[in-house]
């Protein structure tokens, strides 16, 4: 049964580690779809007006590349590409864009005249040179990752054998690089506090001291809008126990603009309904401000 399991698994993973000079149908499909998305994403990265859209396009390109890595047999690298590049690096970009708000659209006027067209020309020629080099290079038949991966029983153990034996020094140096860069970022982004940070206790005590001098200072959370009233919108004020409107429950901006919604009175029950039982007063607060037996 384990042989059947292996057969099923290898059948399902037959996309990996392609053959000698041409790949199977699945990988071809993946390549063409992924290549289109990558190139479109790269164009979106360059030509987007908003920086966040560029970041998203780049994240899409990175996910396509991760799929390519997995299709070529580098399973661990593909997953690490998503975790590190898409999940951490692009997230860092997005955070910086959102927090610092570097969002102003660039002006289209050039500082160096004709730079744009010169850049396009140079990039196209450069791309042509690269493609020409690859076309002329003597690239032999593709050996595929089957044997290399099976050398130690899987992609991850084989990578580990190489990483911790032959490239160990580079591994240690790269860890030093990471620590240094983390420290460098902390130093650059640090803001030295000149006064001690006020704690929650101090802020609350301060609020009460100000209240003792000026009774109009609000020390409690303000009432939510629309509580016990008919609607829950932010411009519907809450009602106080005597039926009047609580001014504090609506945002100050809305109050200043006069956009506080009025209250429609509840329908009055018919006389034969009101006569049912003594204590059956109209439920809840009625909005027209009638002051009769509220909360009986």
């Amino acid at each position: 049964m384990s042989a059947a399991l292996l057969a099923t698994q290898s059948a399902a993973t037959h996309l990996l580690a392609g053959p000698v000079t041409s790949t199977g149908g699945g990988e071809t499909f993946l390549f063409w779809v992924g290549a289109s998305i990558s190139v479109l994403g790269a164009l979106g990265l360059i030509f987007s007006k908003k920086a966040v859209h560029s970041a998203l396009c780049l994240a899409g390109v990175m996910i396509c590349l991760a799929l390519f890595y997995m299709a070529q047999g580098a399973v661990f690298l593909g997953v690490v590409q998503i975790v590190v590049y898409t999940g951490a690096i692009m997230m860092l970009f997005l955070f910086v864009l959102m927090l610092i708000g570097i969002d102003a659209p660039e002006s289209l006027t050039e500082t160096i005249r004709g730079q744009r067209w010169a850049a396009v020309l140079v990039a196209v020629l450069f791309g042509a040179i690269l493609i020409g080099v690859f076309a002329h290079a003597k690239l032999g038949p593709f050996a595929g990752m089957d044997q290399a991966n099976a050398a130690a029983g899987g992609n991850v153990p084989s990578l580990a054998h190489l990483l911790f034996a032959r490239y160990f020094w580079a591994f240690e140096v790269s860890s030093a690089v990471l620590i240094t860069s983390a420290l460098g970022a902390m130093v650059l982004a640090h803001r030295e506090r000149v006064t001690a940070r006020r704690t929650q206790k101090e802020l609350a005590a301060d609020r009460f001291k100000r209240y003792s001098k000026d009774p109009s200072v609000i020390v409690t959370p303000m009432p939510n809008p629309g509580v016990y009233a008919q609607h829950n919108a932010v411009d519907t004020p809450a009602l106080l126990p005597d039926g009047s409107i609580a001014q504090l429950s609506v945002n100050a901006t809305l109050r200043a603009q006069g956009e506080v919604r009025g209250i429609t009175p509840l329908p009055v029950p018919l006389p034969h309904e009101a006569a049912d039982g003594d204590g059956a007063s109209p439920a809840g607060a009625n909005g027209s401000g009638r002051h009769e037996e509220v909360g009986a």
Binding site: M1, T8, A59, V75, F76, V79, I82, L94, M98
Partner: peptide, 29 residues
């Protein structure tokens, strides 16, 4: 005969970590 598992990647658990990293994008955006 088949296992009750959709795919068995050799780096399956890391795959879950990677997928949850992509899910965070939804929240930030």
């Amino acid at each position: 005969w088949t296992t009750l598992q959709l795919v068995d990647l050799p780096v399956g658990v890391l795959y879950v970590l990677a997928i949850s990293s992509i899910g965070i994008y939804g929240i930030v955006l």
